[in-house]
Structure formats: structure tokens, C-alpha cells
Design a protein around this nucleic acid. Sequence first.
RNA 1: GCGGAUGGCUGGAUGGCCGCGGUCCCGGUGUAAUGCCGGGGACGAGGAAAGUCCGGACUCCCUGAGGCAACGGUGCCGGGUAACGCCCGGGCGGGGCAACCCGACGGAAAGCGCCACAGAGAACAGACCGCCCUUCGAGGUUCGCGCUGCGGACCUGCGAGGGGUAAGGGUGAAACGGUGGGGUAAGAGCCCACCGCAGAGGCGGCAACGUCUCUGGCAUGGCAAGCCCCACCGGGAGCAAUGCCGAAUAGGACCUCCGCGGGGCAUGUCCCCGGGGCCGCUUCAGCCCCAGGCAGGUCGGGUAGGCAGCUGGAGCCCGCCGGCAACGGCGGGCCGAGAGGAAUGGUCAUCCAGGGAAGAACGGCCGCAGGGCCGGACUUCCCGGACAGAAUCCGGCUUACAGGCCGUCCGCGCAA
Length: 118
Amino acid sequence: MATLTKRADFLAAARAGRAGTPGFLLQARKRRPDEADPTMVRVGFTCSKKVGNAVARNRAKRRLRAIAREVLPALGQPGWDYVLIGKSGVTAERPFVALHDDLLQALARVHAARRGPQ
RNA sequence: GCGGAUGGCUGGAUGGCCGCGGUCCCGGUGUAAUGCCGGGGACGAGGAAAGUCCGGACUCCCUGAGGCAACGGUGCCGGGUAACGCCCGGGCGGGGCAACCCGACGGAAAGCGCCACAGAGAACAGACCGCCCUUCGAGGUUCGCGCUGCGGACCUGCGAGGGGUAAGGGUGAAACGGUGGGGUAAGAGCCCACCGCAGAGGCGGCAACGUCUCUGGCAUGGCAAGCCCCACCGGGAGCAAUGCCGAAUAGGACCUCCGCGGGGCAUGUCCCCGGGGCCGCUUCAGCCCCAGGCAGGUCGGGUAGGCAGCUGGAGCCCGCCGGCAACGGCGGGCCGAGAGGAAUGGUCAUCCAGGGAAGAACGGCCGCAGGGCCGGACUUCCCGGACAGAAUCCGGCUUACAGGCCGUCCGCGCAA
């Protein structure tokens, strides 16, 4: 599992599928085969200043990282990019198990939406 | 005990499970380069890491040196410091009973400008009311005389004119010193005492300044946070600075190689023929262009990316010495984050502070009493961690901050 570092990757994920949850917003896309290593799951995190001051943003990002580490190695699909976006207030405050379930449901929706039309 | 002032420290603890960052060691593997994977060791946010407001270090750019001008900043004195707009000590002014706190605190006899409103008068001051003197008139009292009147003296809640006056009233942020006495028609530094002020001198202090004596009757209104003057300081941009390495692709330069256009049919290792320019004409030769590449190589710039800068420093701790202190000196010991979409955590449990609710032994007060009110060891349950996250590094300032701990001092009350 790698971390996204390029702005372009974030923008590409934003244009593709998305799924809102009470705790955060998930964006995801399947990469084209000629991009990065197709066996890899990549993930990025975004917490804008709307989330709060530096302490609040960092805490939100750390909690998003924690659930990503628990969930994505098993349920993330190879060749996909995932971006988790923090929400003001709730991402840092919501119970951890609820945040965990949010990601499970959001992943299911994002994957289903991608397969559906095909 | 109550109330207050001030200095310093601290900024939850322990454990389980799962993780992150650089670094060192071991093993494996790989790139143009940095690396990557597995295992292990120690280490890994703050007092403000914040605001980015001052001062520096360090880089690059500009500049021959100095001076002057402009612009910006600082502004009582002395000391500390690499430096500062910071810190310490002192002076002066203001507030407070006091501990203590606050202060853009140089210059207004260099010049310009401004001083609204109110008020009579506001910067070469000023006469509104009031007070005083005086002339005339009016009225009155009284005296005298030559007595339908005339004259003198005095008086006035009266009128008009002339003059004096800055004590009093009133206006204002401010009215050409203040208080008291003498003096005067009334007044006035007109005179005197004290205070203030100015000048000179003595003494104390490095100085800011303080103090004493003498002299002067008082000049020099305020605003410099309007311009200004004086003294001192200051070149600009910033670690996304700056230096180095450097793919792929495109483009550039050079070298080598191949090749260029038209036509024929027998389609080949074939044959025939070039045009334009240098050159006005002809021939030959040369060079250039029409006219290139799908090739190979070399080189330089440079993008992605990587490396350095990057953490050993005006460093931290302890002791001794000097200094009222800020701080300095000496000796010994220590190494304490280094990321780059950015680590230093996620989660659970228990505990310690703290808050709330319920119960409650017991104690106090009120009441004849039933009872009511207040405090409350202890028990149970619930809530529950302030402000805030390094980004080149230091010294400050400012701002934010739940709670806790330690010290010193002041006022009041009580006791001895």
C-alpha cells in the first residue's frame, strides 16, 4: 500500500466515484493499466482548513490513516486509488468503530457503482 | 484567618493490542541516482512549536572607498548582549494606605502650522457682569443767605459720559504663577513671607538627576502621536535562499552513415535525365539551396526525480568565582526530533487531579415540638482532560491557556 503524493492523482480520484459517510468523504478510482504498479493499492488523505486548526487536521488525518490501515489491505482492490477526506468536527470526534464501519460501507458503494454500468 | 501584590515551576500517570519517522547494527535485493524488504537496539513536539512583530547567524544579488541627501526606525541615564524596539539597575512623572504597577519619558528662546465649541477676551491677550474714582443730570437730607429762589456739604437698589482695575463672577482642556499678609479709591509681584519658576554657583552622582546658597518679581501657554530639529541605527531578497547530481520525452549543436527530384520497362545489385543560386552569356569545376532521415554516436542547457543545506548550537546540566541584578568567567559532564501530501500516533482499560447527581454517620444553628436550614468523613453512578503540532537555526516581544505546586512581600483582623 502506497501513499498518494501528486496533486494530479487527487484530482483524478475526485472526478471518479465518491461516497459520503457520516464521518468522512471517500473518493476512489481504478487506475488505467499504464499508470503505477497495477497490483498496488494507493491511498491519500485530505483535511483542509475547514476541518480546523493544525491540531484538529492532524488528528483527523491520523484517524483516517488508522482505519485505512485496518481495512484497505483486506478490502482495497489492487490498481485502485482511494482518497479519504476529513469533515469538520466529526472526523476527529466520531467513535472509532463507527468510522471503521463507515469505510466498509463506503468501499462497498464505490466498488458497486464502478461495476454497475459495465 | 480574610483580602491583595509579585516571582518561579508544571502542562496528566501506568499498562495491553495495532502502527509511524529518521538513525545505528545484521541479512537479502535493486536503481542513472536516492533506495527497497525482513529482524533487532536506543531515540522521536512546545511553553508558547502559534502570530510572523523586532534583532541576528547563514546564503545569493548589488556595491571602489568615504561623505552628503532622501527614506524608514529608535528616543530619560547607566549597564548587559552577537544584536535588538529585548533584559537588568537607576532617575523622573502618574496611580495605590501599602506590597507594587503603569509611562512613544530628547528638543516648543531654529522655523512653519494648529488651538474647535463656549467665552468679553486664546498667543503682539482681554473690560461682559462686578468693584472704584470722576463730571453732568435727577431725587433726597441738612446748613447758610439779600428766601415764588440761590449757593455749599453729604447721600442714593437712579440715568448718561470719561477713566482706573484682572482681586471676584461666568466660559473653557488651557485665562500672562499659587496661598496668606501688607498696600490701595478699587486693585495689581506694587511690596513681603512661603511654594513654584528662571539664571548663576557650590556639593553628591559615571550619568539621568538630586540638593543647598545667592540672584531675579516672573519672563518662556499647549500640541512634536502635524511638519520639523537633534542624536544614534539601517543596502535588497530570503532555506520555495543557495550549491551539486541528473533519467524518459521533446527540442539544440557537432560527427559518422544512408539518402535526396523526374522518367523508362525487361522490376533489377537495371538504364536515362536533374533544376535554381553564387554568375550578364557559354563550358567545366567548386560551394550552397530545392532536400532529408525511420539510423548510430558525442556534447551542453535543462524537466521529473535525487543529494547537500539540515541540525554540535551566541547549546543543555552541575559546581565554584565576580556582579545588587541582567549577565560574565573558569572547571567538569552530556548529545537531546530532523519530516518533506509532512513521523512523533490509533484504540481500549485502570488510576490521579477536577466537576455534577443521589445517599449518608456525625456536627452546628433555629424551634416547646413535629421539623427546617447549613456544613459534611464516607459510599455509588455519570461526565472528564486547557491552549495548542517542529518545517533552516538562534535571541526577544506579543497573543492563547483547564487545572495543580512552591516561594517572597503588603494591608486589615484576632491571639501571644
